[in-house]
Write a protein that binds this DNA or RNA. Structure first.
Lengths: 168, 168
DNA sequence: CCGGATTTTGAGACGCACTCTCAACTACGC
DNA sequence: GCGTAGTTGAGAGTGCGTCTCAAAATCCGG
C-alpha cells in the first residue's frame, strides 16, 4: 500500500525532531543508545542494547536504556515485540511496513514476513465475529533452515548452531 | 479435522489419570482449583481462579494455584495464553481444537476462532522462508460488537461496558 | 485402622523485567 | 556564563511468577 521507504540513514533526525517537538533534550546517552539501536540488526533486547551503547559511551545505565526505548517507541522509531520465552525485543520501525515474525525456537533467529492474503482473511474473520480489528500479532514458531534436524548428524551450513538471541 | 469433542463432564478424571501416572497425589486444593477452572468460561487469570477456588475451599494459596495450573498444563488440560497487556490467562484445552483469539481491547472479552485458510497460508509462508512451523500464535486486537463506538452516545446493547477481564 | 515414606502445602524469600524516586547533573535559551 | 527545566544513575519498588522449607496431608502396605 504505502510506498516502501528504504531504512533511511538519517533516522536520528527523526528522533531530534520528535525530541524538539516535545521540548525534550538531546543527550549523550540518547545519542549512544539511538546509534546502537540503529546499528543493530533490527531486533535487540535491552541487555544487548545496553552493551552496545556502553561500547560507545560507558556511562549508560539500564534505566536510561529503558527510558530511551520507551521514548523511541513513542516517537514511532522502535516497537517492542514480546516473543515467547525471551525478554522484550525492540525492532526498528521507521520507514518499514507492518510485518509479522517467524521465530526459530532453537537459535532465536527472527525473520520478518508480510502476507496481504493473511491480513485480509484476518480482517474478514474478525468482522464475521463482530470485531473491528485495530492491531494484531502473529508469530510463527519453528525451526529455521539451519536448525532443521534434516540429517541426524546435522552439519547445518557454515554458521552452525548459533547461540539463541545473541546473533547479530 | 478431528471431531469436535464437547467439553466433557469428566475432565477431572483426566487429571486423576495424569496424577496417578506420575505418582502424584490428589488433594483438596487441586480438586478445588480444577473444579473452579473447569467451571470457568474458558479464560481465567490466576487471580480469578484463586478467588473461585477459595469459594470452594478458603485455604488455597496463590502458590498452589500457580503450581496446579502448571500441572494442568503438563497434563494437557490447560494452556497459558499471554495476551497483550494482561496477566497470563489459562484456557481449557482438553477436547478442544486449536484456535486463535480475538481480544477486545476495551472490555477484555476473548473470542476464539479458527480459520483453515489462514493456517494453510501460514505454513506456506513459513516454508517459503525455510521454516518448519511447529506452533504459532495469532491474536487480533480490536473492539468487539458491544464496545464499538458506533454512535457517540453509545448504549451498546444490554450488557453495557463490562469491566475488563472480569466477565464470566 | 495405623505408621511412615513421600508428596504437597502455605508463607515468605527470591528472581526477573521493568518503572519510579530523587538528588545530582546537563542541555539549551537567554 | 546563568538559570531552569529536562535527564541521569542508583537503588527502591512493583508485578508476576518460582523457589525454599518446615509443617501437613496423602496414600501405601500391613
Amino acid at each position: 500500500m504505502r510506498p516502501r521507504v528504504a531504512p533511511s540513514p538519517d533516522l536520528s533526525s527523526s528522533l531530534s525532531a520528535c525530541i524538539a517537538r516535545r521540548g525534550l533534550k538531546s543527550t549523550r546517552q540518547r545519542q549512544a543508545i539511538l546509534g546502537a539501536f540503529l546499528a543493530s540488526s533490527g531486533h535487540v533486547t535491552v541487555v544487548d542494547l545496553l552493551a552496545r551503547a556502553r561500547a560507545a559511551d560507558p556511562g549508560v545505565s539500564p534505566a536510561t536504556v529503558y527510558r530511551t526505548l520507551r521514548l523511541l517507541a513513542e516517537c514511532g522509531l522502535a516497537k517492542p515485540q514480546r516473543f515467547h520465552g525471551s525478554p522484550t525485543m525492540y525492532e526498528i520501525v521507521a520507514g518499514r511496513e507492518h510485518h509479522d515474525h517467524l521465530v526459530c525456537t532453537r537459535c532465536g533467529r527472527v525473520v520478518e514476513f508480510e502476507d496481504a492474503r493473511i491480513e485480509r482473511l484476518q480482517t474478514a474473520v474478525a468482522r464475521a465475529r463482530g470485531f473491528t480489528v485495530t492491531s494484531h500479532r502473529m508469530e510463527l514458531y519453528g525451526l529455521c533452515r539451519l536448525c532443521r534436524p534434516a540429517r541426524p548428524g546435522r552439519k547445518a551450513g557454515s554458521a552452525g548452531r548459533r547461540s539463541r538471541a545473541k546473533r547479530r
